[in-house]
Amino acid sequence: MKLLTLFILVSLSCQIFANPAPKYVKPAFELITLGDTGGIQDGNLSAFLLRSLSDSNYIALDAGSLVNGINVALHKKAFANITINNDPAWQTNGIILREHVKAYLISHGHLDHVAGMLISSPQDSKKPIYALPSVNQTLLDTYFNWQAWANFTNRGKPPQLNQYQLIDLKPKQATPIKNTSLKVTAFSLSHPLESTAFVIEKGQNMFVYFGDTGPDEVEKQGKLNAIWRYLAKQMPDKTLRGLIIEVSFDNQRPDNLLFGHLTPKWLMAELKQFNILLQPNITLAGTKVVISHIKYSLASGQNPRHKIRQELAQANNLGIEFILAKQGQVLTF
């Protein structure tokens, strides 16, 4: 009996040493989803808050839904991990918007990515808007023009209210984000209106946010490939903590009706190209990929989210951890 017991213990010990537990990696970023859909669901449009876990302040990644998104996040206790500043002049949602959101990174000028920022601007605080030059120009021409909206920026049609400082990002050049410990590098994306991917860095950690984008095979501009190559060059020395990327439609959507968007099939094709660039020393296995911008539909039938989730799971042979964004959700990376 003693010999049998000893044999079992030795066998278990061998298994433990042969299959060590995965090494714990301390998270570097926190993400709060303020809006997860693309298109028509007002109150829940593309917007995220990202912060370094060493800081209690956020940057906004697009701003389709802002105050309503903050309200939903507060209800779900998504801000429980920070100490919210005390200001008796403002409600908690106002304090978060005014004092804890330090900058906007706007991917492109379509309304479902900027509406929340526009609507909340009369009670917002002074802060910068970082965007590619064409995106900032769209904001001026289309919205901050004293017709669609008052000019809350420091450029364009007078009087300029100087609440938002428009900062033009130079593509592929890192820029520090004011009042944070983060920096951002912008890449152009293929969309009917120029869109942007933002590579956000803190030290040796990277997080990537993609605005709306079509696949390279359809768009014929190679813009996603340029981002994959950039990240592949960085990753031997830096850690890609995660990324947010859109999947607007399911695989039944024909390519000629994508209008600069992705499907599960096309996203997996792009990620496979990225994975090839990383081999043989690095793979995308275990990478957290947050799916955003799923088009809300009023039509009866299967929920688009359910179908897209199924199609991603069926095609996922890279070991990626897909997470469908959900308003009010908090994630760490």
Rank of each mutant, 00 (worst) to 15 (best):
N317V: 13
E321C: 08
R155D: 01
K157M: 06
K202P: 05
T283C: 08
K26R: 12
P133T: 06
R155L: 00
T283L: 09
S56R: 09
P254F: 10
G328S: 09
P158M: 00
T83W: 04
K238L: 09
N275T: 09
I323V: 15
S65R: 09
W90R: 05
L182Q: 06
M268F: 06
D237A: 13
P215K: 02
L231Q: 01
I323S: 05
V10Q: 03
N71F: 05
K202L: 11
T185V: 13
N316P: 06
P159E: 01
A21Y: 13
V289E: 01
V247M: 11
L231S: 07
L12Q: 15
R309D: 14
A197H: 04
Q123C: 12
E321D: 14
H108K: 11
M206S: 07
G64S: 05
K307V: 12
S11C: 12
L166S: 00
H108E: 15
A197T: 04
L4W: 10
L61S: 05
T142P: 02
S297Q: 14
A174Q: 04
D250W: 10
Y143Q: 00
L298Y: 15
F7R: 08
R241F: 10
A285T: 08
Q327N: 10
F249E: 00
K220N: 13
N151R: 03
I276M: 14
L262P: 02
L61Q: 06
I129A: 01
K126L: 03
S248L: 13
G38S: 04
G222C: 07
T5S: 08
V101P: 02
L240M: 06
I200Y: 05
N85W: 10
N93G: 08
M268H: 02
N85Y: 08
A315W: 06
G319L: 10
P122H: 01
Q273P: 01
A269Y: 10
G64W: 02
W266P: 07
K102A: 02
I244N: 00
S56D: 15
Q279P: 09
L318T: 01
V184G: 01
K223S: 06
G39P: 05
Q91F: 13
T153A: 00
D141S: 12
S297H: 07
T33C: 15
D141N: 15
T175I: 08
N19V: 12
S107Y: 05
N317F: 10
I167P: 01
L257H: 12
L66R: 02
Q165P: 00
N85D: 13
E311N: 04
N179A: 14
K76Q: 13
K172D: 10
P122Y: 07
D212R: 09
D216P: 11
M235N: 12
T142M: 08
